[in-house]
């Protein structure tokens, strides 16, 4: 079970939880599960998210594998100038 930490304003979509446990082998599965479990998150996922897995930021990377104890942060999709 990877721990996914959301940013604050997504709380309303997870029933007030900021940290949720998700069973997923990679990022793609994780996002799919998140969307299924918390349909309110779909809009943001569709808009684009990046993830940080154990401290490393992935702008995309759906196939990035997750370890059972991975700490995953959901981040807005990175942009730059």
């Amino acid at each position: 079970m990877a721990t996914v930490i959301l940013w604050g304003s997504l709380k309303p979509h997870t029933g007030g939880k900021i940290s949720v446990e998700v069973e997923a082998r990679n990022v793609q599965e994780l996002l799919a599960r998140l969307g299924e479990t918390y349909p309110g998150l779909q809009t943001q996922i569709k808009r684009g998210v990046s993830v940080s897995i154990d401290g490393l930021i992935y702008r995309e990377g759906w196939l990035e594998p997750l370890k059972p104890d991975s700490e995953v942060f959901l981040l807005p999709r990175m942009q730059g100038g």
Binding site: I5, W7, S52, D54, G55, L56, I57, E71, L75
Partner: peptide, 12 residues
């Protein structure tokens, strides 16, 4: 290194 950043992840 090891600081939990203000936006979430821990710094390398």
């Amino acid at each position: 290194e090891g600081t939990k950043s203000s936006y979430g992840p821990v710094y390398g």
